[in-house]
Write a protein that binds this DNA or RNA. Structure first.
Lengths: 351, 351
DNA sequence: TTCAGTCTTGTTTAGTAAACACGAGCGCAC
DNA sequence: GTGCGCTCGTGTTTACTAAACAAGACTGAA
């Protein structure tokens, strides 16, 4: 008669507690003393208990993490690795599971239906190649959604962002404060709203000094080229007049640009200073180490998961942007603040 | 012997339930059936129960709303009226009380101590005159704090903001799209971080068209002058060359500027177009009605209270900016989009 | 084969007993 | 009278439960 595996009721009587208590122990709810939990767990072990129904309800607290294919293997990607870790660890804290789902830019019709049935919400990491239409489709189906490092103008989605505008402003301000006035910028594809915001921040800082980036010093990015920034930088170096400093819109772009600068036989930062935004792990190992703006990637992931959970729980009713603070990290690629171009002692402030 | 008032235990036995249940009814906790609640409440009424300790614990869920004096009578203030309503209504939903506390810019040492003992957290509306030091003092005392429409650079405070940068960008973009190229801007005091961000957004939009605001078309604001924008606009109108459009950093500034424009015998928008940011209530009753950018003031207040509550409850651990979406409201003060300057049919896009 | 009825499973609601924190009052020595 | 410990009554919190509930699985009659 005891052929069928033990049930919660069996565990309860074996441990001398109520079924509810057993349930609470299994689901890690508050209000259980360590002793009781211990008793229950050992009873579960002794009787070899295995929940029956749990198969289907586990899907009920699973969320999807939609990510574009180019970032795969995403776990090790310079930017999204940290974001994913943040999402994952917050999900764990909330008792949720995360399923990774890759968006392939070549397959037009993305298989949303396969995803949405198993999932209570979706966080969309990065955009660019993920057409706004896909995102709208998700909301039409009433699936809660949170965007990461992207927003859609006039479409008020909940999202979590780095302070991209301020980051652009900060790095540009830093380079201006070092005395530079001939500054170029390596921008990114305009489909990434985060990169657009960064550029706008750069331009605002320049405008405060009544300066504009000359058009020839704002080359368009090569789409699809493996080494971002490399070709853009070459274009600038081929011009008659060369900038004394260049701002790269991302660390990756900066790294490509540094290659081009070195190949041209120029020194960093003596001939050309370079600064960027992201503070990815590799930025501290470039030669010279990159002056950049830290974007708290782990926190972005964490907050995104937290926000998604709150939307699912009905706690967040109005959509808003959550913006995490950025911080300028001064290393060596712009020269140190003590030694500006003309004035070795104090930061230059001419303008 | 029954001289002393009834206690929870008395209520409990009178209603035939446990003390815990009585407590849960009084504190509106979940897990009480309507019938039981009814029984308990009537017992409370019959025995004329009155909680003893509650005197001090009601202060425990009170929060302070710190506001600068110039905004008083704050309830009717054009901007902060809505914000305060938002804070208040969310506080009510959360079962909290709000005490208004006015910061007087003339009294240097603000009496924080009087406030902090009764309060579990503070939301600071506006800044400018509220020195950063005061804010830091609050955090040093470990009082949770949320800033509204302000942040302190490099000091990572939780805050709730309108999307000031984008708002500046939007109104400027709108005016540029109408074909204007000779554009002036009426900026605000630089101590207001929100107004600084708006200006930066304006400058970024201009820079995208490779334009800068000429310095003579960016007059400094008169500090302390009753009618904001009026004197600034007069300065611009006195110049040899006049702009075809002007951007006011706030609705209030725009209203002053419109007076100056009318006094100079010029028509709005035919001679000078004007746009601004805020969408305060009065902006729709100006003549002509003001084209402006809506900043959701009520939502800002609501989110600030929500965020403060979460910080108090220990749910929010990392500080971040919450940014609510803005929206361009096209009325008549810039001319209608169908009829731009040179081209009556389509928006001008030269540049 | 199907379909109503019951059984068994996990889950949720609505509740409780007992321990806890803390100030008020009380007695008692000094 | 004043300070000091002690108890006691207060509201509050923790740890736990009985009973109702939802839903799939099983069963046995039509």
């Amino acid at each position: 008669m005891n052929k069928s595996k033990a049930s919660m009721r069996d565990i309860a009587s074996a441990a001398g507690v109520s079924v509810t208590t057993v349930w609470m122990v299994i689901h890690d709810k508050p209000g259980i003393s360590p002793q009781t939990a211990e008793k229950v767990w050992s009873a579960i072990n002794d009787l070899d208990y295995r929940p029956r129904k749990s198969g289907n309800n586990s899907q009920l607290n699973t969320v999807g993490l939609l990510i574009e294919q180019s970032s795969i293997p995403a776990i090790s990607d310079v930017f999204y690795g940290d974001v994913i870790r943040g999402v994952q660890s917050e999900a764990e804290r909330l008792g949720m599971r995360v399923v990774l789902s890759v968006f392939d830019r070549n397959k037009r019709g993305f298989d949303l239906n396969g995803l949405i049935h198993d999932v209570r919400g979706v966080v969309v990491a990065n955009d660019g190649d993920l057409p706004a239409q896909t995102v709208l489709q998700l909301t039409a189906l009433d699936i809660p959604i949170v965007l990461i490092e992207s927003y859609i103008a006039a479409q008020d989605f909940p999202c979590v962002l780095g302070d991209n505008f301020i980051a652009g402003y900060q790095i540009t301000r830093h380079i201006l404060d070092l005395g530079h006035r001939d500054i170029a910028v390596l921008k990114g594809p305009s489909k990434y709203s985060s990169l657009v915001d960064r550029l706008r921040g750069c331009m605002a800082a320049m405008a405060e000094e009544h300066l504009l980036f000359p058009p020839e010093w704002m080359p368009e990015p090569m789409s699809g080229h493996p080494i971002k920034g490399y070709v853009q930088m070459q274009e600038i170096l081929a011009l008659d007049r060369r900038p004394t400093a260049v701002i790269a819109i991302s660390d990756k772009t900066a790294i490509g640009a540094m290659d081009a600068i070195r190949e041209a036989g120029l020194r960093i930062p003596e001939d050309i200073a370079i600064g960027s935004i992201d503070n990815t792990r590799e930025s501290q190992f470039t030669r010279p180490p990159l002056t950049t703006v830290h974007i708290p990637k782990y926190e972005i992931g964490m907050l995104a998961m937290q926000k998604l959970n709150r939307i699912i729980m009905g706690e967040d009713t109005t959509a808003f942007k959550s913006v995490v603070y950025s911080e300028l990290i001064v290393r060596e690629s712009c020269g140190s603040p003590g030694r500006s171009l003309e004035n070795p002692e104090t930061p230059g402030n001419a303008g």
